[in-house]
């Protein structure tokens, strides 16, 4: 992190604290409500997204509903999504999807938790739309020339989740075991889901 960036973060922290204290002082929110909000965010982890992906691999009907209306389908699993408007995009042998938010850091937090720092970096945000193949190669994902790359810029009210391909040699695994293979990066689109033999 550059010195300039560090200074910026410090300013943002001070601004957040001043703003929050004012809101509490004026009775707009309570400290308890802020704490509850922070605690709720910590219950959101990529394991939720992984459950959704594994269910889609095992249940074609669920997968069809997930691609049609992401928020409604995720609700079926009893996962609280609040106001999330989810669009799920499917990777195939011919098509690879990649998610970015060029304007800020929009991210499906209800399903993946807080975004990684690189997702919020100016470098990822500007390069993912401009040279996605080069960015993916830097993540170790080299796509064949014949595969189409589809980048999704979450500029407004939708949030995106990549439905990765189910790796080979996972036929003997249960849905819960498959869910354990699904990583955050695979659901953003900067990685594939590794087959079991690469994980073990």
């Amino acid at each position: 992190m550059s010195l300039e960036h560090a200074r910026y973060d410090r300013n943002a922290e001070l601004l957040e604290r001043a703003f929050r204290e004012l809101l509490v002082e004026r009775g707009v929110v309570s400290d308890a409500a802020v704490d509850a909000g922070v605690e709720f965010m910590y219950t959101r982890t990529p394991a939720l997204g992984a459950r959704v992906v594994a269910r889609a691999w095992f249940d074609p009907g669920f997968k069809a509903r997930l691609l049609e209306d992401g928020s409604a389908a995720v609700g079926e699993l009893g996962i609280e999504v609040r106001s999330l408007k989810l669009v799920v995009v499917e990777n195939t042998p011919m098509l690879h999807n990649l998610i970015v938010c060029t304007l800020c850091s929009c991210y499906p937090r209800m399903l993946l938790g807080l975004p990684p720092d690189w997702y919020k970096s100016l470098e990822y945000r500007s390069r993912a739309i401009r040279e996605p193949r080069a960015v993916l190669a830097e993540f170790g994902l080299h796509l064949p020339a014949g595969m189409t790359v589809r980048v999704h810029d979450s500029t407004a009210d939708m949030r995106y989740l990549v439905l990765p391909m189910r790796p080979e040699e996972t036929d003997s695994l249960s849905e819960a075991e498959c869910a354990m293979l699904v990583t955050r990066d695979a659901m953003i689109g900067v990685a594939r889901v590794d087959s079991l033999k690469n994980v073990l």
Partner: peptide, 28 residues
């Protein structure tokens, strides 16, 4: 609000990649 699909070579005339590569953006 719409999701609009753009060809990458329309967005970036010097785009390096497949001609089929696309970029989807939400536009009001």
């Amino acid at each position: 609000l719409y999701r609009v699909r753009f060809a990458q070579c329309e967005v970036w005339p010097d785009y390096v990649g497949a001609a089929e590569d696309t970029l989807d953006v939400e536009i009001y």
